[in-house]
């Protein structure tokens, strides 16, 4: 994974224009700022919920830390699934009333952790499995295109001779 992301990062660096890089960096820092604000607000208004979210979203934090891709696909993939996994626990805490007792009940249940971290794990799996499948599909499509084009070129040469290639025949 590290190698994949490093390559992606390097290529992104090579390919991305300076303006785009700056824009990406701005977007990232804005997201972090927004997250910090949300966490601060959440900590001030509903500290137990905040703690649940912080604890539940740890895989996402790891993903954010290790994801150096400009578009942060890993963070987005893991984050989305992780957030979906935190959602049931957060709702239960909400229903039970936001208190440290309720938090204790939620975090005592391994099922909740399984759901939160399992969802994140699915995100990780998605991130690792989809690209090879896509690559395979692309290769198949390229091979098909190549074959089709070569067949068409051969048919043209058969009908119009080697001259149609624009190259002079030997001799």
């Amino acid at each position: 994974m590290a190698r994949g992301t490093t390559t992606a990062k390097t290529t992104a660096k090579r390919k991305t224009k300076p303006g785009a890089r700056r824009r990406g960096r701005n977007t990232g820092s804005a997201a972090i700022t927004l997250t910090v604000i949300v966490i601060v607000v959440l900590a001030l208004t509903a500290l137990p919920l905040c703690l649940l979210v912080i604890g539940g979203m740890l895989p996402t934090a790891v993903a954010v830390v290790v994801d150096h891709h400009q578009r942060r696909y890993l963070a987005r993939t893991v984050g989305a699934m992780n957030l979906a996994g935190v959602m049931p626990g957060a709702l239960r805490l909400w229903e039970a009333g936001i208190s440290f007792d309720s938090l204790q009940q939620v975090i005592d249940s391994p099922y909740n952790w399984l759901v939160m971290y399992g969802a994140a794990a699915i995100g990780w799996v998605l991130y690792f499995c989809v690209p090879p499948v896509v690559a395979m599909v692309i290769e198949v499509r390229v091979d098909e295109t190549k074959h089709r084009l070569e067949t068409q070129a051969k048919a043209l040469v058969e009908e119009w001779g080697e001259e149609v290639t624009g190259r002079k025949r030997d001799g």
Binding site: G4, T7, A8, T11, H69, R71, Y73, L74, R76, T77, V78, A80, M81, L83, A84, G85, M87, A119, I122, G123, L126, Y127, C129, V130, P131, P132, V133, V134, A135, I138, E139, V142
Partner: peptide
Amino acid sequence: RRPERAAELGARYAATTASLLAWIIA
């Protein structure tokens, strides 16, 4: 450049798929 593009595209599909799944789950 094709593997790189495939990886980029795959990651994008993964992110999109995850977002979609997350919404459904939520």
